[in-house]
Write a protein that binds this DNA or RNA. Structure first.
Length: 822
DNA sequence: GCTTAGGATTTG
């Protein structure tokens, strides 16, 4: 690559974003992204219209203005149109979620702005597509949505409803105004670097087409995916650039050589081992030696992934931003799965020169290792170790071109050495080697000069799965006291040089850590070991959170009966409102119990202009006589809304209905008691409910327990139930957060049921344990106590379950709190 | 200026 090419190109999009500029409309539907111009999408339908989204909307759909949307709105064959005024980040948990706000474009500025802007929540692939395709300012038309109450109406002062877009029915039509003419009058791809990435990307199609390696023709510029079957580390060419050689293959079984010229080492493919998956954008095909090969060309970018099935899909790239969607994920996973069945893929890491590297990989070599003696004062790092350690350390001699690379290494680096030669009995090594006959069979390691067969050394980043695994082995050794030195992996450099401060990448960590409060004095185990052990024990593990369910945290809230141990969902408002309206349907005469004083309370109409309503109430005569008029009312014939409103004025509101001429409680699907914002439920199975006067004698505060007892209601507890997918270097594991969920999250489930702040707190907590779109390295390591136990399923079979217990999340005491969230 | 490399060790 020529140095002078840079000014011609936007430095940012070189990493991504090609294709022709597309102005017009796209349609988003679950699982389908339709956009682009001819030749873009292969089998996908293409929908581009230049005259706005309305032209595409099927005629049988009718539009409702945003301000008229209500939870009761029948959404069948309806559309909502609005301009995107806010586009939230793509959140990935079990599924993708994206929140956006759209505003009625037609609304007058003086119209109630509160109701002309509405939150739109997108789920699944639609959220992903929206994230990539739609920009602030675009006008969208939504259909196939549902309406729900906005939980954030008090906070954001937007429309009291949300639009939810999920499932196959959900569809979004998008239109975008063509941008003003480019003042530089250059073609789009040559726009100047002063344009923001956002702007230039917005104008380009988001999709790439990848050519199967079997379909490559000479003389084209293409983008490809492939599995690495051979590679060389970048080496200095005779020209201006470093040169990488690699060979890739794919399901077509074509083996394609690639040559990459880049001046900067970081722009080369970051390949760690054969089997890695690479994706290259903008490589040109050439005919050489009777076959097609690939060379990078202008705008080249490459991203590399671990090739192991089931490994994280963590992109290795120097590109500051790059496109990666569900389809890419699928491609990587397909290549991994395919490659896993190909015998040609093997792992063969080796290394070393005439700098001596002393390394250990956590294993004990069956051969005696050659000792290489050097002067202590030329050694960087400890000059000697205990005899036990010395027997485990491999001495690696690296030669020629590798010396320069070895110079930059530091003790503590994790390396992979490629094409290392192991020879027994070598006596011709530099330094003061033993030449006694008993050392003839000692194993020596040489990394010879040159790059043949990919010979070279690579520093592995701290967050790579191989390093994580190796560290666990090293830690285990340290704990076993066999090697109780923290510097287990040593690298010497001879002669000593002042080293660059060039450390490997570290995970950014997080502001949360997990603290065990149990007294179990046990050594941590890996997940792999844990899975092999018998249930009925507790274990300590050190893990990261890979994912969690449910992604909509309110669904984690359940109702639990401690008597029959059943767990049920918290009924939603719609269901509860239905119970109320059902209960008020029979206004038949009803004789109040003898202890009750009956009366009426007037409540304002539901909507402005509608008449006041008079609701029947019953009060405990005993409480009345004590002057406790606001402590408790039995409320009759109210709607859910009215009940909630009255709960603000009375400490305890018990909704009742008339049943067979008597006062009865509502169906226990609905809360039997309202206390301020809190609602209490009873177990249908265990309650023997009847309207009775609570005994308030000697009772300081009439609370939910007093009332439940009086009414014969078995009070349900709010509980939290989540399923967390944990991972470490060895395995993944599903564990429940249940018994100690409140301890873990540091709040009461009951609080979570009624308090927006508590809900936000949990969302933030989960987001920092498992940042959306974050890489493994950004997730904190958690020290957990896990109980393994047997639980029967519906078929009567036992299976082993795991639960997080005795562990709470905590902010580290250190004030050095990094908060990298953008 | 638009190349460079184009896998393939025998060896301290």
């Amino acid at each position: 690559m020529r140095a002078s090419q840079a000014p011609e190109f936007d430095p940012e999009p070189v990493s991504e974003a090609d294709g022709e500029a597309v102005f017009g409309s796209v349609i988003l539907q679950q699982g389908i992204l339709s956009s682009g111009g001819p030749g873009h999408l292969g089998a996908m339908p293409v929908h581009v219209l230049l005259d706005g989204p309305d032209a595409q909307v099927p005629a049988h759909l009718t539009r409702i203005p945003i301000s008229l949307i209500e939870t009761s709105t029948d959404c069948t064959n309806k559309t909502v149109k609005g301009k995107v005024v806010h586009k939230g980040p793509l959140v990935q948990s079990a599924d993708f979620i994206l929140k956006s706000v759209i505003q009625d474009d037609d609304s007058k500025p003086d119209a109630s702005s509160q109701n002309s802007s509405i939150n739109v929540v997108l789920f699944g692939p639609l959220a992903n597509d929206f994230s990539q395709t739609v920009n602030q300012g675009d006008v969208v038309v939504a259909s196939g949505f549902t309406v729900s109450k906005s939980p954030t109406v008090h906070k954001d002062k937007l429309h009291p409803c949300n639009l939810l877009l999920s499932g196959d029915e959900a569809c979004l039509y998008v239109s975008r105004q063509p941008p003003p003419p480019d003042p530089t009058s250059l073609p789009a791809i040559k726009r100047s670097a002063t344009h923001s990435t956002e702007a230039s990307r917005a104008n380009k199609a988001p999709k790439y087409t990848y050519v199967p390696l079997g379909d490559l023709k000479p003389g084209c510029v293409v983008s490809v995916y492939g599995v690495v079957i051979f590679f060389k580390q970048p080496f200095k060419s005779r020209g201006t650039d470093y040169c990488s050689s690699l060979k890739i293959t794919d399901q077509s079984n074509q083996k394609i050589s690639c040559t990459i010229f880049c001046e900067k080492l970081e722009d080369h493919p970051k390949i760690f081992q054969i089997g890695d998956v690479v994706r290259m954008h903008r490589v040109k095909t050439q005919y050489f030696n009777n076959s097609v090969m690939l060379v990078n060309t202008f705008g080249f970018s490459v991203v590399t992934f671990d090739g192991a099935v089931g490994a994280d899909v963590e992109p290795r790239t120097s590109s500051r931003s790059f496109h990666f969607d569900q389809e890419d994920l699928r491609t990587v996973e397909e290549l991994r799965a395919w490659a896993a069945n190909q015998a040609l893929l093997a792992k063969a890491p080796i290394d070393s020169t005439c700098t001596l590297l002393r390394v250990w990989d956590g294993t004990r070599c069956p051969w005696t290792l050659l000792k290489v003696l050097v002067e202590p004062d030329v050694t960087e790092g400890p000059s000697s170790f205990s005899r036990e350690k010395e027997n485990l350390i491999a001495n690696v001699l690296v030669y020629d071109n590798h010396v320069e690379f070895a110079r930059q290494l530091q003790p503590g680096n994790f390396l992979r050495i490629y094409n290392l030669r192991a020879i027994p009995g070598s006596s011709k090594v530099p330094g003061l080697t033993g030449r006694h006959s008993q050392e003839l069979d000692h194993l020596a390691f040489h990394l010879h000069g040159g790059t043949a067969y990919g010979r070279g050394i690579r520093v592995l980043p701290e967050n790579s799965s191989d390093v994580q695994q190796l560290k666990r082995v090293l830690d285990a050794f340290a704990e076993n006291d066999e090697l109780n030195d923290s510097e287990l992996l040593e690298v010497w450099c001879t002669p000593p040089e002042s080293l660059d401060d060039d450390t490997v990448e570290h995970g950014t960590g997080s502001c949360l850590r997990a603290v065990r409060s149990c007294s179990h004095d046990i050594q941590p185990v890996t997940l792999c070991e844990l899975k092999r052990s018998h249930p009925g024990r507790v274990h300590h593990v050190r893990v990261q959170l890979r994912s969690y369910e449910p992604c909509r945290l309110h669904q984690a809230l359940k109702l639990y009966c401690s008597k029959c141990t059943s767990v049920q969902e918290v009924p939603d408002d719609e269901l509860v409102a239905g119970v109320f309206s059902e209960a008020s349907r029979d206004p038949g005469a009803c004789s109040p119990p003898p202890w009750a004083l009956s009366g009426h309370v007037d409540v304002p109409g539901e909507s402005p202009g509608s008449p006041e309503r008079s609701l029947g109430i019953h009060l405990s005569s005993q409480l009345m006589s004590e002057g406790k008029t606001k402590e408790l009312i039995f409320l009759m014939g109210s709607t859910l809304k009215e009940t909630c409103r009255l709960a603000a004025g009375y400490q305890n509101v018990i909704p009742v209905r008339s049943s067979g001429g008597h006062l009865a409680l509502l169906d226990l699907t609905a809360p039997f008691l309202f206390r301020g914002r809190r609602r209490y439920y009873g177990c249908k199975r265990c309650s023997k409910a009847a309207v009775r006067e609570p005994c308030a004698e000697g009772v300081e505060v009439i609370d939910e327990k007093t009332i439940a007892e009086a009414l014969g209601v078995e009070l349900l507890q709010f509980v939290l139930l989540m399923k967390l997918e944990l991972q470490d270097a060895t395995d993944t594991l599903e564990a429940f957060l249940w018994r100690d969920a409140e301890l873990f999250l540091g709040l009461a489930a009951e609080e979570l049921a009624s308090d927006q702040e508590a809900q936000d707190h949990v969302c933030q907590t989960m987001a920092s344990l498992c940042p959306s779109g974050g890489h493994t390295g950004q997730r904190p390591w958690l020290d957990l106590c896990l109980a393994a136990y047997q639980a029967g399923n519906d078929e009567g079979q036992n299976r082993t379950c795991y639960q997080i217990c005795n562990t709470r999340l905590s902010k580290p005491s250190s004030s050095a709190r990094s908060d990298p969230e953008p």
